[in-house]
Amino acid sequence: MATKALVIINCIILAIGNCGGPLIMRLYFNNGGKRIWFSSFLETAGFPIIFIPLFFSYLNRLRRNNNGSENISFFLIKPRLLIAAVLVGILSGFDNYLYAYGIAYLPVSTAALIIASQLAFIAIFSYFMVNHKFTPFTINAVVLLTVGAAVLGMHTETDKPVHETHKQYVIGFLMTVAAAVMYAFILPLVELAYQKAKQPMSYTLVLEVQLILCFFASLVSLIGMYIAGDFKALLIEAREFKLGEAMFYVVVVFSAIIWQGFFLGAIGLIFCASSLVSGIMISVLLPITEVLAVIFYHEKFQAEKGLSLALSLWGFVSYFYGEIKSEKDQKRIQQESELASLSRTISEC
C-alpha cells in the first residue's frame, strides 16, 4: 500500500514538473531571456527544498531511537552510492544544458515530441545496463518512437520561430535529440546505482541521491554561467524582461521549484518501479505538454507534428500492451509451474 502511495505521489510530482518545466522555461526565453546556462541551472537549483523532507525523516528516526541505542546521522548515504550520485549529477548538468539549448530555439511542442523518442533509448540502455528484456512489442515501440522523432526533422522551416535562423533551429533540434539520448542513459544509470549501492534503499536515501545529484548538476551549470558571463548579464536581463523585473524573479523561482518536481518524480519512480517505467511516464505526459504549448503559446501544429504524435502514441500503446501481455504470461507460467509442482507432490504421496 505504501509503495502504491509513493508511486502515485511521484507520478503527480513528475506530471507537474514534466508539463510545467518546459512551459515556464519557454516563458523565460519568449520574454527576453537568453542565458542558456542559467536556464540549465534553474532545472536543478531547487534542490534545497529536499532538505525539508530529509529533516522530517531525520526527526522520525530520532523519535524511533528513544533509548539512544543507535547513532543516528542526518545522512544515510554511503560512499559507493555517493560517488555514483556525484557522477550522475555531473552528467545531468551537461544534459540540462543540452535541453535548455533546445528549448531556447524550438517550440515546446516540437521539443516534447523529440523527447518522446528517449523511451526508445531508455529501453536500449536498460537492456544492456540493468537487464530489462526486449519483446517484439518493445522493439516495435522503439522503432515507432524513433521514426516519430525523425519525422520532425522534415520541413523544419514550417515550424521555425520567425525570430530564429535555420541554423539555430537545426542546432536546437540536434541538442534536444542529444539531451533525450543522454537522459535515457542517465535513468538506467540511476537504477544501476540503486542495484549496486550495497545498502538498503529507502525513499529517504532516494531523496539524498536527488539532493547530491542536483547539487553537482547545479555546480556544473554555475561553472558554465561563470564562463559565459551570465552573472553580469542577468541583472540587465531582469531589468529588460518583457513581463517586468518582478515577474522575472517569479519565473526564476517557480522554474526552480517546478523542475525539481520533474527530477524528484523521475528518480522516485525508478526506486518504486524501474527506469523504464519512469521513462514511460515521462513519455506519456508529453502529449499533454504539447497541447498546453499550443494553448498557451499558440504554437503551430502542422501535419509533421500530428504524424509524429500519432507514431509516438502508437509506440506507447504497443509498449504498454507488450508489458501487460508479458506480465500475464509470467503469471500463467508461474501458475503452471506451481500446479506441476503440486501434482508431483501429490503423486509422490
Rank of each mutant, 00 (worst) to 15 (best):
H166F: 10
A217I: 07
S202M: 03
L219V: 12
P188S: 00
V170M: 15
Y183F: 07
V181H: 02
I186P: 07
F173Q: 11
P136A: 04
T204W: 00
M182L: 15
V147F: 08
F216L: 09
I186R: 05
L174H: 01
F134E: 10
S218L: 06
Y194Q: 11
P136D: 03
F173K: 09
V190F: 04
V147M: 12
V206Y: 04
T146M: 13
M129Q: 06
Q210R: 03
S221Q: 12
C214F: 09
T158Y: 12
K160S: 08
V142A: 13
F134L: 07
Q168C: 00
A141S: 14
H166W: 04
V142K: 03
P200H: 12
V209M: 12
H166A: 15
V151P: 09
M175H: 04
K160Q: 14
C214G: 00
Y183K: 10
A193E: 05
P161M: 10
C214D: 15
Q199D: 06
D159H: 02
M182F: 08
A179K: 02
T176W: 01
S202N: 13
I186Y: 04
T176G: 12
L145V: 04
A184Y: 03
E208H: 00
M175R: 00
Q199F: 08
K198A: 14
F173G: 06
F173Y: 15
A184M: 03
L174C: 13
I212Y: 10
A149K: 08
T135Y: 03
